[in-house]
Design a protein around this nucleic acid. Structure first.
Lengths: 117, 117
DNA sequence: ACCTATTTGTCCGTATGTATG
DNA sequence: CCATACATACGGACAAATAGG
């Protein structure tokens, strides 16, 4: 996987790095179980600080795309592709309709989902 | 609001701080629109680094509990309470269960809700 | 059981940039 | 223009978990 960063971009470095990796996972270039470069190594290769890389990795971790473990590294999480999601989408639509009736905002619903997860 | 940190606790400092504020919001001690202490000030008062406080705030921001804006500070987000929400909560629980069966992550579900809103 | 190297996790300090008022 | 406050990035230090010899 090729990662490049543009230090003059208005997009933060950690965001650029996370975005590239996120795309690679989405494209299947990185598969579940695959290990990312150690932060130290990637930082050296990219010419950025290790903290910047670790922040990128942490972002992907928060998204559930990877797992991070000291001594072991960062590995891509099991694939989350949904096969039969039509039913799920129907539920989501119903839920949204219900939430709207209660006068909830999008963020309020999102927060509720987040809380109950 | 009183915030104390235990530097010998195994719980990270930023987590301790975020937890205290999270609790204060849950208890209604902090109300929507209320402003948190500037990170610099709180850091000084607690005897920790400003980054540690900013990390706490960022965590609460990711949870949707507060908003952060340069120059303006950190403010508690609008309350999410819904009056007749028992049915809605039941739907959310079902939805989450369904989503889990499909192997979706929390963020994937959130994104789905966001997209369909 | 021990030691060592690797790698992430947290915290500190400093510098500079960006948005707001 | 200026002060305030968060945002990003760098560097260094040490801790904690893991793997391997």
């Amino acid at each position: 996987m090729l990662i490049v960063v543009d230090e003059f971009s208005k997009e933060p470095l950690y965001s650029q790095i996370a975005g590239t990796i996120r795309g690679a996972i989405a494209d299947g270039e990185l598969l579940p179980g695959d290990r990312l470069f150690p932060a130290k190594q990637l930082a050296r290769d990219l010419g950025v600080n290790i903290h910047t890389v670790l922040r990128s990795y942490a972002e992907l971790k928060d998204e559930g795309l990877v797992k991070m473990r000291p001594g072991q590294g960062v590995t891509v999480t099991a694939n989350q592709t949904v096969k039969n999601k039509s039913q799920l989408e129907k539920m989501v639509r119903q839920l949204i309709q219900q939430a709207r009736q209660y006068g909830m905002s999008k963020n309020q619903l999102a927060e509720m989902v987040n809380r109950k997860w």
